[in-house]
Design a protein around this nucleic acid. Structure first.
Lengths: 144, 144
DNA sequence: CTAGTTTAGTTACAGGTGTAACCGTCAATT
DNA sequence: AATTGACGGTTACACCTGTAACTAAACTAG
């Protein structure tokens, strides 16, 4: 019978590694601010783009619109972002970070980059080819 | 201000890629049998080991015991596996695939391997270094 | 102008998930 | 043998998620 070892099976391994990385990454922002991943993604997107509607955030961070909606609500309650009605289209709500939101962003980003750098360093010479392969995978699965 | 591009951030990319791979892989077993990922993992583990308790399955497939418990229930209702009380330890339930379970397993495994092979082929010369990097990551995050 | 369609965003609902509490059994100590 | 703690497995609960239905606003075509 054709054999399959789960522990050597690519989808399984990718899932586990991604989960472990996310889990570890949570330790980066967890202690100070207790964010969920969707909240972090919204924060990161708004930190990157200053102004954006929920739709745009969803597109950029690859999240379902309900996930974005809830993450935005949560961040709003935390007073890390505020909404403003778009003038061209009153359905749309333009979102921006508040001062506290930008402060949190500025605190988290260096830690996030350090976290990433640490992984890349531990990969050593394998890092380059690995990142190149990730790009190929993104093409293969049309993620860009 | 230190900059972070979400779309270039490793944890984000890994999560997206893993999700896309799982999603695509679902198309492999989805059409015929409509399995969840936990159910597939239990099936794969029992296909690999013939007999095992829920605890062992959880350890081997990196799943929480409640997830295993529910996946086992689902597969039992499908009549793809059966339970038998262990004779050494009456707390433990030894699980084995039924004939239908083994049949499904034999149908899915070649497709799963083909799916994996296709990805590796599309990676071409980058496949080797990529898989090596995955092993490094598994070490770094103590997944083995 | 108006009817029908599309779009930005929210929400009700159903399903999946982990935490914690639980049941029955085993093992160690007395 | 009785007690205590550990263990395999299940379940109640709370939380998160996507689907689908919804609201309000915008667009399109008569």
């Amino acid at each position: 019978m054709a054999h399959l070892q789960l522990e050597a099976f690519l989808p399984y391994r990718l899932n586990r590694i991604a989960a472990a990385v996310s889990q570890d990454f949570r330790a980066v922002y967890g202690p100070h601010h207790d964010l969920t991943i969707p909240e972090w993604r919204v924060l990161a997107t708004l930190g990157q783009f200053d102004e954006m509607g929920a739709k745009g955030i969803g597109r950029h961070s690859a999240m379902h619109k309900t996930k974005v909606s809830r993450a935005v609500q949560a961040l709003e309650e935390r007073r890390w972002l505020k909404r403003r009605e778009s003038e061209e289209d009153r359905r749309e709500e333009i979102l921006t970070l508040t001062a506290s939101g930008r402060k949190a962003y500025r605190e988290i980003v260096p830690k996030a980059l350090a976290f990433e750098r640490r992984i890349v360093e531990e990969l050593g010479t394998e890092a380059g080819p690995f990142l190149a392969a990730l790009e190929r995978l993104e093409e293969i699965f049309r993620l860009r």
